[in-house]
């Protein structure tokens, strides 16, 4: 059976291309981490903006969030990649990719923040108001410290999702994992091994990560 397996999956070749693929994986990990940091910050800003008392802030922020969430990440990537240089903004594809990734997933994390903030007991708001705290202090000292820890599992899920979705950066020429596999495939005319290896590498990281997220979920469920 092993011979048959070797016949169609060339392990020698797989080992040969592994270092290159790992370089691609490093870019993928970097893109997802930087993108996630952006998404975590933008998501919070979006969530706070949507809750603003001032309709002139809440409505436009809401509209932008809904718009970004209702359009494909790939099209947003193309938009930034092709349109920004038109207006003199020439950024490396990696930067464009992480910004688009962060913006897109920011709209998802903003929903997580919203749910987390809504889950904080009304009494906490009332107590803060009764104590005459300033809005900044209410948010930073009372609400967010209670709202954010239970969000960790949901945010973790989005980090794993972003790790996989960062493969789309291949479409705007970022040399991440999938693009590296593609390039090897085109150069050697052998697709089976590189693309399968790419899939396995994604699995190798995302499966244990989602296991950790499940552990977190179980911990915060009680």
């Amino acid at each position: 059976m092993f011979d048959e397996l070797v016949e169609f999956f060339d392990f020698q070749f797989a080992l040969e291309i592994l270092p290159q693929l790992l370089e691609g994986l490093l870019i993928t990990v970097q893109a997802s981490l930087v993108g996630f940091a952006l998404a975590a910050i933008l998501g919070l800003l979006m969530a706070l903006g949507r809750r603003s008392e001032n309709e002139l802030i809440a409505q436009p922020v809401g509209a932008v969030v809904e718009f970004i969430r209702s359009t494909p990440l790939l099209v947003q990537l193309f938009f930034f990649f092709y349109v920004l240089p038109r207006y003199g903004l020439r950024l490396p594809p990696f930067i464009i990719g992480t910004i688009a990734l962060g913006l897109h997933y920011g709209t998802y994390t903003s929903e997580v923040y919203r749910a987390g903030i809504d889950a904080v007991d009304t009494g906490q708001w009332e107590a803060a108001t009764a104590l005459n705290f300033s809005p900044v202090r209410v948010w930073t000292a009372i609400i967010l410290p209670q709202a954010i820890p239970p969000m960790f599992p949901a945010l973790g899920n989005y980090l794993v999702a972003m790790f996989k979705e960062s493969a789309l950066l291949a479409a705007i020429t970022v040399n991440e994992l999938l693009q590296t596999g593609q390039v090897i495939g085109t150069r050697t005319f052998r697709y089976l091994v590189p693309i399968t290896m790419v899939g396995l590498l994604y699995l190798l990281i995302s499966y244990p990560s989602s296991m950790i997220v499940r552990k977190l979920e179980a911990r915060y469920a009680n």
Binding site: F8, K164, L178, Q182, Y191, I195, G199, Y202
Partner: peptide, 24 residues
């Protein structure tokens, strides 16, 4: 479920389109 949720949909698309037509 774990394989399809654990890898990127773009990788799956490429695998189905580029690898499935090949040997074996």
């Amino acid at each position: 479920v774990e394989i399809f949720r654990g890898t990127s949909i773009l990788v799956q698309l490429f695998w189905i389109y580029f690898v499935l037509p090949l040997d074996p």
